[in-house]
């Protein structure tokens, strides 16, 4: 029997996970929902954002919460010239490691910028919130450059 037709089909496999967040990540996400960024102080005095549940050095449970700033400094970055469908921004953007003011470690997020030339290590950026935060890391829609910020 000859098969003349090429049999081809798109399909989607979905894993519709829900995750319980626990006391620390839950409080961090609650903070985002309220347009605040919360970190936690580790045993060495460093403020960690996003907050871990346990101290990286001593493994002790952490609970010393610290609200940090919504502006920060780019520590490193990578330009994405062709965003994919699952990326947070659909125009070219940068993945950035941002150390928020008051924090001692950087966190990763996306930076909306006009071009790679507009991004630099040491550049100042700030949080741009979504219109309706719901308690998710994407409540931070992206970071945007601070006008006149040092670079």
């Amino acid at each position: 029997m000859a098969i003349t037709e090429k049999l081809s089909q798109e399909f989607e496999l979905g894993f519709t996970y829900t995750r319980s967040t626990g006391p620390v990540v839950g409080r961090f996400l609650t903070g985002l929902r309220d347009s605040r960024v919360l970190g936690i102080r580790g045993s060495d005095g460093r403020v960690l954002v996003p907050p871990p549940e346990y101290d990286p050095a001593t493994a002790a449970a952490l609970s010393d919460w610290v609200e940090v700033g919504q502006e920060g400094t780019v520590v490193s970055w990578c330009w994405v010239s062709e965003p994919r469908a699952s990326h947070p921004l659909q125009q070219p953007f940068a993945w950035v490691m941002v150390r928020l003011d008051g924090a001692d470690v950087p966190m990763i997020h996306c930076l909306q910028a006009s071009s790679a030339e507009a991004v630099s290590t040491g550049g100042r950026v700030r949080v741009a919130w979504v219109a309706e935060p719901r308690g998710h890391i994407t409540d931070i829609r992206c970071f945007v450059p601070v006008p006149g910020g040092a670079s």
Binding site: L13, F15, T16, Y17, T18, S20, T21, L29, R33
Partner: peptide, 11 residues
């Protein structure tokens, strides 16, 4: 307070 998130994965 937030106690859970949806984290779907679509292939």
């Amino acid at each position: 307070d937030v106690t859970g998130i949806e984290a779907p994965v679509y292939l």
